[in-house]
Amino acid sequence: MADNKTLKDIQGEVHEYISQFKEGYFSPLSMLARMTEEVGELSREVNHRFGEKPKKATEEENSIELELGDILFITACFANSLGIDLTEAHDKVMHKFRTRDANRWTKRDTES
């Protein structure tokens, strides 16, 4: 696939990958548990890099980038299994933030 993948491309690539297995997608509850695990792993990596808890010498080398990738993968699995278009979901969320939070934060000066 191209370097500039869309969410639709990502969802399609994940679906193609999962479709090769008889088991298919996990149940929504199992995927939520998996997502929770991945967010926990991301939290651990962020804490190691920016927090007060350094990694033990025996711990595997990992990265925030890979943990975010795992979260993106499970998010695409979750959405695919429920027939949700992540681009549409993103557009709806951005509309919500642009309207609900339009004046919530101090905007940057655009003339700088």
Rank of each mutant, 00 (worst) to 15 (best):
Val93Pro: 00
Leu32Cys: 06
Phe50Ala: 03
Gln20Met: 04
Ser112Phe: 14
Val39Ala: 07
Glu38Gln: 11
Ile10Glu: 09
Thr58His: 10
Ser30Glu: 15
Ala89Gly: 09
Ser30Phe: 13
Ile71Phe: 00
Glu52Thr: 15
Thr36Asp: 10
Glu23Leu: 03
Met35Ile: 13
Ile71Cys: 06
Ile10Phe: 06
Asp3Glu: 11
Arg108Met: 09
Gly12Gln: 08
Ile10Met: 09
Ser43Cys: 05
Val93Met: 09
Glu52Cys: 08
Glu61Ala: 13
Ile84Met: 05
Phe78Thr: 12
Ile10Ala: 08
Val93Ala: 08
Gln20Thr: 13
Gly69Ser: 14
Ile18Leu: 02
Pro54His: 15
Glu52Arg: 13
Thr87Ile: 00
Glu88His: 06
His15Tyr: 06
Ala33Arg: 10
Glu16Gln: 10
Ile84Leu: 01
Phe50Gly: 04
Gly83Ala: 04
Pro28Leu: 03
Phe50Gln: 04
Thr99Ser: 12
Cys77Trp: 05
Lys5Pro: 05
Met94Asp: 11
Arg49Trp: 06
Val46Lys: 09
Arg44Trp: 14
Thr6Gly: 02
Asn62Thr: 15
Phe50Tyr: 15
Gly12Arg: 03
Thr75Gly: 04
Arg49Gln: 13
Asn4Lys: 13
Glu13Met: 09
Asp85Ala: 00
Ser19Gln: 09
Glu88Leu: 04
Glu37Trp: 01
Arg34Trp: 10
Asp3Cys: 06
Leu7Cys: 01
Gly12Thr: 07
Met31Ala: 03
His95Phe: 05
Ile64Met: 06
Met94Gly: 00
Glu16Ile: 02
Lys96Met: 12
Gly83Ser: 08
Leu86Asp: 11
Leu86Thr: 11
Ile84Tyr: 07
Thr87Pro: 00
Pro28His: 04
Leu68Trp: 11
Ala102Arg: 14
Glu60Leu: 10
Ala102Gly: 09
Phe97Met: 11
Gly40Ile: 12
Ser81Asp: 07
Ser27Asp: 15
Asp91Thr: 08
Leu68Arg: 05
Ser27His: 10
Val39Glu: 07
